[in-house]
Every structure is written in structure tokens, then in C-alpha cells.
Design a protein around this nucleic acid. Structure first.
Lengths: 162, 162
DNA sequence: CTGTATCCTTAAAGATACTG
DNA sequence: CAGTATCTTTAAGGATACAG
């Protein structure tokens, strides 16, 4: 993977997320953190990840403010920050998509509320209710670059022709 | 990246999702597809990706049933299938997380309904309303392996002690 | 237990040239 | 326009040994 693409250049919210949390191990570590894993060794055994890899990921996750170190210096605890906890909807949406579309088997993990009642499938909601892919639109936002605006102009003009 | 970790082994819904859609280019291609991009060349220019890389990703996305080829053989169109469209909640949740936590700038892309009304932040919903990270629980599902069950036993017993 | 420090290996990105 | 075919490079994973 030479010269790993600099996604931050792409001026895209998705790319910015992926830049932080968009590799396999990182996401899986976050998942484990949601499941209650706190210790270095527990992450390691749970994931079967090499120790040096885990160490760099944990460092990065702390640097990015997704995990915070607690406990003692010799025996740290890693726990989710608010930023990390805020990732829950995205993570569950990802899991649900996998359950729905990428699995012959039944889900290995069930997400419920504290009383064991099911969590509903994550949906997009507008002011008048649920929205699906046909019901939504994308448009250049306040942070859009000229390039992004040009992209939207071009894309929408094309869709008119097709 | 020698011997790219086989996530499917992990028996995790998240891992299964990541196995399919969990690399940078793939996600970004899917994003572009949601934005209305349909042509090989448009993907290429939009993403600045090498043609050989794009070709393999597009092939894989078709093989995985996320995109489907239309148009002519000489001039294919790539459009989202239902499986691909079903990824929308996850993608928007990822974008929203990036907007909220990984961005000093304002979002470059705004998601709205067809009337231009805003899409609400994606939230987890239980039977009684919104749920946050403290309000949810994970438990072994019907597809859980013995290993997964053991993991849950151990994790929950530890959290009692801490 | 929680890491560091090395070394090795290789999958995969990128560039480029070529084809129908 | 939409790829295929090579070739080269290199970032990053894995293993292992060692340290506080």
C-alpha cells in the first residue's frame, strides 16, 4: 500500500471519518470497547492481533480522542470517550447491514436496550418520517470547495441527460 | 499488508461488513454512486484513483452485489442495487460522525429529503425511544460460536469486578 | 501485564503503456 | 471511453525477542 491515499484531501465527511477510524483493526478495537473490553491483553486475545500493531492502534485511538487511558501507568484501562461513544450509531448500522446483506448465518451479537428489548434497524429520518435512498438528495454544503460544487453541477446535469 | 487478516473468521457482523466494504476506495466509490456517479471515467476523475485499481474495485462491488452493470458492454453504467442502497444509513451515520467529531470545517455535503428538508442525525431507537451507548447491551446471538459465548462470559464477569 | 525494538514478508497502490 | 497488462515501490502486518 504505497503512499496511502490522503483521504483528508478529498474534503468529504466520509473520507474524514475513514481517515480516523477506517481501517479494519481500528474499527474492531472500537467494537470490542463497546463490548466492554478495557485491557491491552484482552484486546489482544480477543482480536488475535500482534502486540505492536495493537499498541500503535491504541495510541492512535487515544490521540484521536476516541479512547482515553485510565487506570495506572503500568496497567492502563482504555475506555471510550464521548467521541468514541458517538460512533455507536455508525457501528450498529454497519453491523445491521452485515446481518441483513452479508450473512447466511444468524447474527453472533444482538444489540438490545438494558431490558433486553430489541434495537430497531437504523433508519434515516426526515421531518416527516423514514427516508430511503430514493427519497434523499445530496447538495453542496457550506464547506464545499469549488471543486465539490463543480462536481455536483456536472453530476446533476448528466443525470438529466441519461 | 501481508496476509490480509481474514475478518470473516471473526464471526462478527461488523467484520463481515468490513470484509466487503471495508476499504477506503470501496466506500468512496459507493459514496460516489449515491451521489449519482455512474461511469467508469467519472469515478476515476472524481476519486483520482488509478484505472486498474478502480477496475478491480468495480468488479468486486459487482461480484458482491452492491453495484450492478447496466448500459452497453462498451459503455457500462454502474448503479446501486438494493444491497448497495441498503448501505445508506451506515454511510450517512459515518458522514454525520465525521461532521460532528472530525471536522473543524462545515460539511461539504448536505443530506436532505427531496424537498430540501434536513435529515436528522442517525440515532439508535429502541421500543421506547432513542438509546445511547449507556442504554444498550450486547449479548451472544443465535449465530454466536462457543468462542463468542466464552468471550461474553468473561467480559461480563470482569466488568463486575472492576 | 504492557508494551518496544527488529526484522521479514507481501499484498496492494501507483504509474505507464497498450488494446478494442 | 473502458478497461488490461506489467512493473516497481513501499507502507504496514506478523513474528519474535526483549524490557520495565
Amino acid at each position: 500500500m504505497p503512499g496511502k491515499t490522503d483521504l483528508s484531501e478529498l474534503n468529504c465527511s466520509l473520507a474524514r471519518s475513514l481517515d480516523i477510524v477506517g481501517d479494519w483493526w481500528t474499527l474492531l478495537i472500537v467494537r470490542d470497547a463497546f463490548l466492554g473490553v478495557r485491557r491491552f491483553g484482552d484486546f489482544q486475545r480477543s482480536l488475535g492481533i500482534a502486540k505492536n500493531i495493537l499498541a500503535t492502534r491504541l495510541d492512535q485511538l487515544c490521540a484521536d480522542g476516541i479512547l482515553a487511558r485510565g487506570g495506572t501507568d503500568k496497567r492502563p484501562l482504555y475506555r471510550l470517550t464521548d467521541k468514541g461513544s458517538g460512533f455507536l450509531p455508525a457501528m450498529v448500522a454497519l453491523m445491521q447491514w452485515g446481518d441483513r446483506w452479508a450473512s447466511g448465518n444468524k447474527p453472533p451479537v444482538i444489540v438490545t436496550d438494558a431490558q433486553g428489548r430489541p434495537v430497531k434497524p437504523v433508519r434515516l429520518q426526515g421531518v416527516r418520517g423514514d427516508l430511503d435512498a430514493q427519497a434523499i438528495r445530496f447538495s453542496p454544503g457550506p464547506g464545499a470547495t469549488a471543486r465539490t460544487r463543480a462536481f455536483f453541477d456536472e453530476t446533476s446535469s448528466k443525470s438529466r441527460v441519461e
